[in-house]
Amino acid sequence: MHKFANPAKFNRLADIILPWIIGLTVLAFASGLYYALWDSPADYQQGESVRMMYVHVPAAWSSMFIYLFIAVASFVALIWRHPLALLAGKAAAPIGATFTALALITGSLWGKPMWGTYWQWDGRMTSVLVMFFLYLGYIALWEAMEDDEKAGRAASILALVGVVNLPIIKFSVEWWNTLHQSASVMRMDGPAMPTEMLKPLLILGIAYQLYFAVVVLWRMKLEINQRKIDVMRRIAMSDEG
């Protein structure tokens, strides 16, 4: 039925690719962390706490990237009924939710020395929080239904509705903030960043995405194997009569 979606073929392909990406991931993390922790300057205002950025910003990037990944997977799953695309979305969601949580937690830990408070109802923070809720909804919908195929397609509809809404939510939340609060917001896009800081940031950004690729492949293999077991059980049961 789905010639291009052969799970066994996918498993074999994943096994070939995985060692290479794992190697690249280790390399990227090692060099990125070296630059981030030792070979980059402390900020003249923020001091050493600026190094929080190297954990925080790539996590925030990943949270958005993975949401987009899920949306594309959902689209493919709904239009072409591609079973592996459903699994890709399912496998990616907890990783995305974790990165979003990481971005929120590191952000608030960074915020304490910076602004003197753990949480601000700032537009950017609030919209990331909302994205975290969308991730939770997607995961919960997968969990709520017994039939995986149905659960996956329902969750895919939600993911697509969410992707339409996400820019609106982000836009409205940022607008709301400027209306209600004085802008006490640190902005990344203000002064250009020195290259010694930009280099580790970008390397770690890539490292995070590579890490995502590794884990999502692992999780997809896991899902495929679970289905294999499930199918074997069913066949064994029907042979029993």
Binding site: M1, P83, K228, V231, R234
Partner: peptide, 10 residues
């Protein structure tokens, strides 16, 4: 009568 697309997972 069996569930659809079972075999493909094997």
């Amino acid at each position: 009568a069996s569930k659809v697309h079972l075999e493909q997972w094997l």
